[in-house]
Structure formats: C-alpha cells, structure tokens
C-alpha cells in the first residue's frame, strides 16, 4: 500500500507496530484452528446448510412465480442460453461477411486506434551489443 515510512518515528509508531504484529499472530492462531479436521467438518456442514437453504428458497420461488404465471429463474436462464446461441451464430455470420468483404470484423474499432508502430524494437542490451560490433 502507500508508503508508511514517514510515520515511523511518531507517537503512535509502537501502536502501529502492535497492530501489525497482532494481525500476524491472530491470523496464525486462527489459521491453526481452521486447519484442523474438526473445522473442515463444521465448514462442510455449514456449506451444506447454506446450499440447501439456497436450493429450497429457489424451488419455492419457482413454484410461486409459476403459480402467478411469471417467468422463473430457470426460464430466464433458458432464454439466456438461447440468446447466447444466437449471439454466437450472429458473430460467425458477421465473421463470414467480413471475410467476404475483406474487412476485419472488428474493423471499426481497430481503425480508431490509428496506424501501428513498426515491430523493430530491440532490447537495450542488444542495441548496445550491435553498436559495439559496428
């Protein structure tokens, strides 16, 4: 992050040092606990609960929206998938048309970039060596 050297000799320097040290120590302490099999088992259990809740809520909402004749999340995902297929096909058609007309499919944006520099650059070391050999 930003340079903190200028705060080194100040009144709160030792407090800042303490914060840094405490952070390292507490992280290590908690990581030691989190590295145990017991923690992993609890974490796995909690994740299962979270996922089940999400799933149940999702299913309940699906039923609710269906009852109201409104599109559900799965309906929208299905529409999204179809749109994605259409997008891919459109891009392929664009590509073919661009190739037929001899223009890059992304021609408009590339043109905005203007002329490109030559690919002649040499690293500083190689340039020096070349000069030395001359």
């Amino acid at each position: 992050m930003a340079d903190q050297k200028n705060s080194g000799g100040e009144a709160f320097a030792s407090w800042r040092e303490w914060v840094s040290q405490s952070e390292t120590q507490v992280n290590k302490l908690l990581n030691d606990v989190m590295g145990t099999e017991g923690y992993t088992r609890v974490l796995g259990g909690l994740t299962k609960v979270f996922v089940s809740m999400q799933k149940n809520t999702g299913e309940a909402m699906e039923r609710y929206f269906s009852a109201l004749s409104l599109p559900t999340r799965s309906d929208l995902i299905e529409v999204g998938e179809r749109l994605s297929t259409i997008e891919t096909r459109l891009a392929a058609i664009e590509e073919i048309l661009a190739r037929m007309s001899g223009v890059s499919a992304s021609g408009s944006e590339s043109a905005a970039a203007g002329p490109r520099p030559p690919r002649t650059k040499k690293p500083a070391v190689a340039k020096k060596a070349a000069k030395g050999g001359e």
Binding site: T88, S106, E109, S110, G114, P117, K121
Partner: peptide, 24 residues
C-alpha cells in the same frame, strides 16, 4: 484499448501502443 473479439462474456482486448516502435 480496442475489443477485437467477443464471444459470450469473453472479450479479447488489444491495447493501443504507447511506444514509437514495438517488439516483433
């Protein structure tokens, strides 16, 4: 930068050069 290719959420960018000459 310019987007030179798109597919789904993927975008391929080309950054505009900032040097007089570039490596090959």
């Amino acid at each position: 930068k310019d987007t030179i290719y798109k597919k789904g959420t993927l975008q391929l960018y080309h950054y505009r050069p900032l040097a007089q000459e570039v490596y090959r």
